[in-house]
Design a protein around this nucleic acid. Structure first.
Lengths: 140, 140
DNA sequence: TAATTATATTTCGAATTCGAAATAATTACA
DNA sequence: TGTAATTATTTCGAATTCGAAATATAATTA
């Protein structure tokens, strides 16, 4: 290959998906960053701010803002770690969990429906390739 | 397939690449949106605002801001179309072209080096898959 | 143990991005 | 032709995102 079309189409695909997710979670008063944090906690019970940053790919300064909003919406709680007082542990509140119980299955179903325009080989190959690219830079 | 890993890795890959490009063009006082506009005009000579928006995947309201900055940096010029006075035509200034002559080949080389961690089949398959996903939503 | 370095997180101000509404010009069509 | 609908672009205010510097705690090391 000799051109940068792959980058173009990657950006386009990202934008397309991001837009779909944005519109989807907007109905619930969330933005994509907020949804990312809730999703991470939905699967992991408890995570430090640091761990969330690594998962959700938002720079630390932005993450503070996202977390603050989620706390003030009462979807997550934030407790200082006893072990390491620099660290803060995040988890869903009951309200937050109830929200995710409601929206995550729908979200997952919608996303799967989208990915199913790819056949299995295609999706697997793409996934492997994207993993390689994703390892290039420690995001922010 | 049954999970959303593909979306996760797509987001991660995008972030990774975007970060690399951001750091790259930052040296020249540009952000990624600005670079996108310059790149489009470097390949196309003249494009309307509308056409640029479709290429660069930035919402129209944001694009006004990006264009304004590029004009004030004297990298592009903006002329009202005679044919259709709603429309404005953009093109590189000499300064803008000189800048792109300098940075685009390096940028292209760097990007190609990154993509070359994929073998050809992999890149082709991924490209096809990404195109499908990119067609899902008219970006913004 | 004191001083130094490393890590986790927040604060800050600035830049960017957003969607919605406004403006201006063109096209459709009654 | 006149009015309505469509298209291209900008304006607006608000939300989000950014990197750099600050803070607070922990780990290392002299």
């Amino acid at each position: 290959m000799n051109d940068l079309k792959t980058i173009t189409v990657l950006f386009r695909a990202y934008n397309s998906l991001e837009k779909i997710i944005r519109d989807d979670v907007f109905q619930y008063g969330l933005n994509v960053s907020e949804f990312g944090v809730l999703e991470a906690l939905y699967h992991k019970e408890q995570l430090s701010v640091k761990a969330i940053i690594d998962k959700v790919l938002v720079p630390n300064s932005s993450m503070s803002y996202v977390i603050e909003n989620l706390v003030s919406k009462n979807y997550i709680k934030k407790v200082q770690s006893e072990k390491d007082k620099r660290s803060f542990l995040l988890s869903l509140t009951d309200v937050g969990r109830k929200l995710m119980d409601k929206i995550f299955p729908i979200h997952k179903h919608n996303m799967r429906k989208i990915l199913d325009i790819l056949n299995q080989d295609e999706e697997e190959t793409m996934q492997k390739a994207l993993v390689k690219i994703g390892k290039l830079s420690k995001s922010r």
